[in-house]
Every structure is written in structure tokens, then in C-alpha cells.
Design a protein around this nucleic acid. Structure first.
Lengths: 316, 316
DNA sequence: TACAGCGATAAGATGACATTATGACAAACC
DNA sequence: GGTTTGTCATAATGTCATCTTATCGCTGTA
């Protein structure tokens, strides 16, 4: 006894509709014996007759009627499967789980989520905000689809794509406005407030000061850039923040922002995902949207690249 | 590009559950390459990846997750199809459309329907009450599953099975009680009330009088036995009714019932259905229930066969 | 009685699908 | 660092399902 097959159900449905082997066979674009055999096998599999073969006509049995109702449901569902696949072949659909490091998330996410949602209305976006190492782990575990982190991560299993570079700026108490901008060596002598262990931005800042992971004299661990800026505002010390954070974090704090002279501290922000990800193509498209979002965002605060440069030299 | 197959969906479901080709293959009792190939073909058919193949694990894609939900629904429905067939293989299920001639229906149907309904609770019974020729036509057209008629019908496409024989009794006005029972010749001289053309019982009665289809002097057409009895009660004439109708039809009429001496008029009642009917076996069982119902019914009115005989000779 | 319509059956060709063997690749383990 | 292990993909091949064409048998009709 063979198993039920969709083919048999399709033939059955055609025969149920036409009540005629020949016409049903035509409808299925097969020969009459083919449908004849398949229907017989279907009936054998079920152990029940589905059709009553009369000399003048073929008719569904009572059971066949009920069977037909269910079969039509099933065939419709199956056809919908194919439709579903076709419609979501290129379009990004369903859940997009994206991770972002905390020193990027608050500044970039509102714009990104807005843009992505409006461009892909079938998409619901889950955001995970944590540090790079955890993001990479969750990416590998398949709990995330992509992450926005500072490059490089140098994981062979991950695709990295550069989004943009962002410079770091010095945040000093408000009364320091106009004072000379310290260089890296001078910075090392100041009370530098940094994020706690694990944040890549902490390492990047330390790296700029040539301090690497060695613990400096008077570092204070802060949990967020916002906290650090508030502490600076209170005169406790100075800190570095990424340029993108400036508009948000200095809005309600009496601090002074200074940009370093060359070499400017900076980092590269990029997006990563598993090389094996089946939505790699869509993720690439998303990365472009993210890049544009970031560009727009920065253009809002630094109206033109030229103005940006002027501003830089002025403060330096 | 091949079509979707249930096999592919089953393999897919197994793989979605196990996230492992080898174990999924075991679960399906096939080899690993078999499932590998089928999944690939499924993905090709859909034009989308369902799984993300990592070196350490296999994971559903977003689309695969949604696909899996639907596939599980479909597979469940398909399995229910087989269950449905198995459960209704022997049991009579669904609609039973049964036709009954009018000179039987009112007397037999209440009992039959009660018995059938209680014995097959999944059965809903549709009754059609009309004359034999129409019943046979509707049977042939597949609009009826079976019919209860007077035999023989001699249709080669139909199975006939005898249910019981019933005699005809003479109905005279109440004041004729005790008068000698007329014989067939005498009956021909009386004002005999009969059903209108088309009723087999009319022909059977005429036949008893050796009148066949020739129109006698003073026949009056009545539409039902009930009407005929009422007319007899009013003194308009006499009539014949089947024995089974006696309890019902003489309850509220002042008429006298007389049974003929041998040869007693009678007819054979049977059940018929298409020889090709797939529920032939069940119909045979139903015919037994009908026969029992009829026996019970007659036993209620003629408490014992012996009493019946005594009553017969007494009135004759 | 011959004919036409229709479904069932038979025989041969084709294709789908399984199996076994093997390859490719990454991870894990001396 | 090479080897082993685990895992999925691919290849070669055999088998079975299923299709097609040809034909039969039955039934109702001209």
C-alpha cells in the first residue's frame, strides 16, 4: 500500500469536479488511464470508495463528498505555500533580529528602525543592545540575524561590511571651552572617564591614548555615555564620546566639546552577519539603508562636509 | 522544476524538528542523502532557502519557520484524511437519502428513522416520498441511495431485496361490519375508491380485481389512503388499504375492516439500490433493520401470528 | 446489430527516488 | 599541524512508481 500523495489528491479533486475521467484527465494534462489508476490507488490506500462508477456517469460517494471538502482545503493550503515562498523570495519578511553595540544604538537606531519599517512593512524588527562579544556569540548561535559593531571583528564565519567611520571627540567641563585641546599624552594625565570593561569603545579610547588595556591611574567606570557626560558636566573629569553621540548627549549638559587635531581618534562602524545567512542579499540592502540613515543623521548635525571641516579646524 | 510533494513536506517537517539531516533521515527511515536531495529540491521549487546550513548545525530560516507552521497544519490535515477514511470504512456515515412510496411511508418511516438514527448516530437521513417510477429515476440519477417500494421493479441496474409481504384489507363503511366479505367479482360491482394514477398500490388493487389498467365504472381518485378512508367513512364507497395502514387510518374513522379469504390480495415490499452503490453492504444491513422494524410494527397490532390467523378466519 | 462513449486493463518507456559510496569542509583532538 | 570525526553534498546506479499508447469490455443508442 503506497502512501497518500498530493498528486492523487489533485487528480481526485479534478475528477470530483468533472465527474468524468476523460475530462478530468484533460484538466490535469495527463492521459485517462493515468487518472484512472491513481484514483484506484487512492481508494485502495483509503480502503474506501470515493466514486461510484456508473455506466453513464461518475459520482462522488457520501464519503467522497466529505473527503473532497477537506482535500480542497489541503490543496489550497499547499498552493498558498508556494505563493508564500514566491512573495517572500526577494522581499525581506518576518522577523529581523539585529544587534547593536550600546555606543551606537541610542543615536542610530531611531532613524534606522523608522527607515526600515517604512521600506519593508512586512518586517518586524527585534533589537538587541549589548557588547560586541555577546553579539558575535548570538550571531553565531543564530539568535541574531545581523549586528552593527565596530570593525574589524575578524570572524571568518562572518561577513563584515563597512558602514561609516566616526571620530571621537573630547568632552570637557563647560568652563574648559576654548582651552587648548590636549594631545594624547596630555590626556593620559587627565582624569579620563570611560565605560566599564567589555565595551569596545572603552578599548578604542584607551588605544587612542596608547594605554591599551593597562589600567590608568584614575579611570572611573561609567555604564553609559550619558552617565559619563553627566559626570564630566559635574566637573569630575573628561571623557571621549563618538561624534554621533554629541547632539544627544550634550543637549542637557554644560560641557564643552573639542575635536582633536590629526591624528583624530576614530573607529569604523560596520554591519556583520553569518556568511551562511540565507538573507545575506537582503542584509546587504539593509546595510545600505543603515549607511544612508547614518549619513543623513550626521548631515543634520554637520550641515555640510565643508562646514564640518571648518568647525574641526576652528576648535582644534 | 518538479512540483511540491507530500514526501518533501514530511521530510522538511522532520528536518525542521531535528535540525539534523542524519537524525531526520532516521526518523523518516531513509538514508541521509535522500532527505538531503529532497530538501534541496523543495528549496529549488520554492525558490527560497528553508534551512541555513552551518558546519555545526542546521537551522530554519525565518521563512522556514513560517513555512513549517503551515506545513504542520497541512500534514495534520492529510493524516486526518486517512483517519477519516478508516473510521468511516465500515460505519455508515453522512447522508442517507432514502425514498419511500406514499402507501408505506407514513406507517413505516417513524419506526425506521427512529431505529436507524439510534443505531447510527453519525447518520442523517433524508426521506423522499413519491411514487415508484420517480424513485427509480432518482435512484438511477444518484439523487437517492435506496428506496422502499413494492417489488418487483425489474431494473437490471438495481439490487432488489425483499423486506416483507403485506396483505390488503377491505375498508367498508362502519355499518357494513359483519356483512359477508365480497370476492373479487363482487368488488368489481362496488364503488371502489382508489389512489390516483401513478401509485403502484392502485395498480395492485386493480390487479386483484382483474381490472388491470382498464378504467372501471365508478372509480374515484383519491390522493392518499387517509383521504380514501375518510371517503369510505362518509359512505361514498369502499377501498383497499395495505394491512400496515390499518391502525393509523381507521383510528378516527367509522369504517369496517374485512380481510379477504384466500387468495388474499397482497404485495411484496422490498428495498432497492444501485448495484454499483459503494454502500451496498451497509444498505443490506439497513434493509435488515427495516425488516425488523416492520416485523415489530406488525407484531404490535397483531399480537401473535396465531391471533392474526384467528382474526382473519373470523372476519372472512 | 453496429456504433459510440467511457472507464479499466496491459505493456512498455520514462522518470522519480532510494541506496551505497564518496567528496568537501569545518571542528575537535591528539 | 596533521589526523580524526561529524556533517552535509554529490555521484553512480538500481528499483519502483507512474506515465503513455494500445486495447478491451461494458452500456446505452442509432
Amino acid at each position: 500500500m503506497t502512501n497518500l500523495t498530493l498528486k492523487q489528491l489533485r487528480y481526485f479533486e479534478a475528477l470530483a469536479r468533472h465527474n468524468h475521467f476523460g475530462r478530468a484527465a484533460d484538466a490535469c494534462a495527463i492521459s485517462q488511464p493515468a487518472i484512472s489508476v491513481q484514483i484506484r490507488e487512492l481508494e485502495e490506500t483509503l480502503g474506501t470508495e470515493l466514486f461510484e462508477r456508473g455506466p453513464r456517469q461518475v459520482r462522488l460517494t457520501n464519503f467522497g463528498e466529505e473527503f473532497a471538502l477537506r482535500v480542497r482545503d489541503i490543496l489550497r493550503s499547499v498552493d498558498e505555500l508556494a505563493d508564500l515562498a514566491r512573495s517572500s523570495r526577494d522581499r525581506l519578511v518576518g522577523r529581523l533580529r539585529i544587534g547593536v553595540i550600546p555606543t551606537i544604538a541610542p543615536y542610530l537606531l531611531p532613524t534606522i528602525i523608522g527607515n526600515l519599517s517604512s521600506m519593508h512593512d512586512g518586517l518586524d524588527i527585534h533589537v538587541r543592545e549589548t557588547q560586541t562579544q555577546k553579539l558575535i556569540q548570538e550571531l553565531a548561535d543564530g539568535r541574531l540575524d545581523a549586528a552593527i559593531v565596530a570593525l574589524p571583528v575578524s570572524e571568518p564565519s562572518l561577513t563584515e561590511i563597512v558602514l561609516f567611520a566616526e571620530t571621537f571627540v573630547l568632552v570637557r567641563p563647560g568652563e574648559d571651552e576654548g582651552k587648548p585641546v590636549p594631545n594624547r599624552e596630555m590626556l593620559r594625565e587627565m582624569r579620563l572617564l570611560l565605560l566599564e570593561e567589555g565595551h569596545c569603545f572603552r578599548d578604542q579610547a584607551l588605544s587612542f591614548c596608547n594605554m591599551h588595556s593597562a589600567r590608568p591611574r584614575e579611570l572611573l567606570d561609567g555604564s553609559s555615555l550619558s552617565t559619563l557626560v553627566q559626570m564630566v558636566s559635574a566637573g569630575i573629569g573628561v571623557t571621549l564620546i563618538p561624534e554621533m553621540a554629541v547632539p544627544v548627549e550634550t543637549r542637557s549638559a554644560s560641557v564643552s566639546i573639542a575635536r582633536f587635531r590629526s591624528p583624530q581618534p576614530s573607529r569604523t562602524i560596520g554591519m556583520i552577519w553569518r556568511k551562511t545567512s540565507p538573507i545575506a542579499k537582503q542584509l546587504l540592502r539593509i546595510s545600505e539603508i543603515v549607511r544612508q540613515s547614518a549619513d543623513t543623521l550626521r548631515a543634520q548635525h554637520n550641515p555640510t562636509p565643508l562646514a564640518h571641516l571648518l568647525n574641526l579646524t576652528a576648535t582644534a
